[in-house]
């Protein structure tokens, strides 16, 4: 038997596994092999743990900013997505075209480019100044406005496809029944079709928000001190990039994990009364790791 065949049957090569394990052990014990040539070869546990368990006000502020910007941008994205989806199904062709072009542009260009274009580019030619505005006594800097605007606008393009798929999945008979009762298209959409489409929309929407939480890290290009930029600054001050970026990653992991719990709850809530809906959504284990639980026999047997 050739070595390659052995490795195929055994999965990862033992040598690789060994190397990985030993480097991890080195890391944990703090015995770097490079010796005393550099100042910080050892893992700085105290800087690492304190940035996780006793975060200073900078980290908390960054965390707050990341969550707030994510929530607002996602909300804008959902609302925009609903209107774009409806526009793409409109009777009037020009409305469909405008929506299609919008989606084409925002999905077809990098978010990073959109961010710098709308903040620096548009700002430079004085099309829009991005001046600070006052919302309920809170000063909102232009960069944050631009960040929320672009994230929301970008998300709207993606949400529109999700919303459209949700609307299309609803039996046309629902719209007809609503219309036959004297409802207008708008009334039927709002009261009958969209609430049902929401069940279809919510799982992918949850994934979009998971993405949004992480994507806010791109806002560093606008100089916004969200979670990622905060740790960029920190590692620049304490020269601990390994510890700081690892802590940063764990903070994001915490955010997306908490969101995973919330998402599961929301999905269960929306499944109530749905025909043939399971009593629970995918479990957390499945959500995080993609592990499918064994199918319960009670769910398989159909009939009333």
């Amino acid at each position: 038997m050739t070595p390659s065949r052995i490795s195929r049957t055994l999965g990862p090569r033992p040598a690789v596994v060994l190397a990985g394990a030993s480097s991890l052990a080195l890391l944990v014990t703090g015995c770097g092999s490079q010796g005393a040539a550099t100042t910080h070869v050892a893992f700085d546990w105290s800087a690492f743990t304190s940035s996780l368990f006793t975060p200073d006000h900078l980290i908390l502020a960054g965390l707050f900013l990341t969550v707030v910007i994510s929530v607002i941008s996602q909300a804008i994205g959902v609302i925009l997505g609903v209107f774009l989806a409806l526009a793409r199904m409109a009777k009037a062709a020009p409305i469909r075209w405008i929506a299609s072009i919008y989606i084409w542009v925002f999905r077809g260009t990098p978010l990073l480019v959109q961010l710098v274009f709308f903040y620096f580019g548009v700002g430079a030619v004085h099309l829009f100044g991005w001046n600070p505005i006052n919302v309920l006594g809170l000063q909102i800097p232009g960069a944050i406005q631009a960040g929320i605007f672009v994230l929301g606008a970008n998300e709207g393009a993606y949400m529109s496809e999700i919303v459209r798929a949700g609307i299309i999945s609803i039996d046309p008979g629902q719209m007809e029944a609503a219309k036959s009762l004297g409802m207008t298209y708008a009334q039927a959409m709002r009261r009958i079709v969209l609430p049902q489409a929401a069940r279809v929309i919510i799982p992918p929407l949850g994934n979009e928000f998971n993405n949004m939480l992480k994507t806010t890290s791109l806002l560093f290009v606008l100089g916004i001190q969200e979670l990622y930029e905060t740790f960029v600054i920190k590692q620049g001050q304490n020269y601990l990039p390994f510890e700081m970026y690892l802590a940063c990653a764990l903070w994001f992991l915490l955010l997306t994990t908490i969101w995973g719990f919330i998402q599961a709850r929301i999905e269960r809530q929306f499944a109530k009364g749905a025909p043939g809906a399971p009593t629970s959504g995918p479990g957390l284990r499945q959500r995080l790791f993609g592990v499918r639980p064994a199918v319960e026999p009670s769910l398989v047997s159909g009939g009333r």
Binding site: D171, G173, E176, A177, A178, S180, Q196, G273, A274, P275
Partner: peptide, 14 residues
């Protein structure tokens, strides 16, 4: 003014 009853009922499931 015109009530309609459909073959597939079309009740609102939610």
């Amino acid at each position: 003014e015109i009530g309609m009853v459909f073959q597939r009922f079309n009740l609102f499931p939610h």
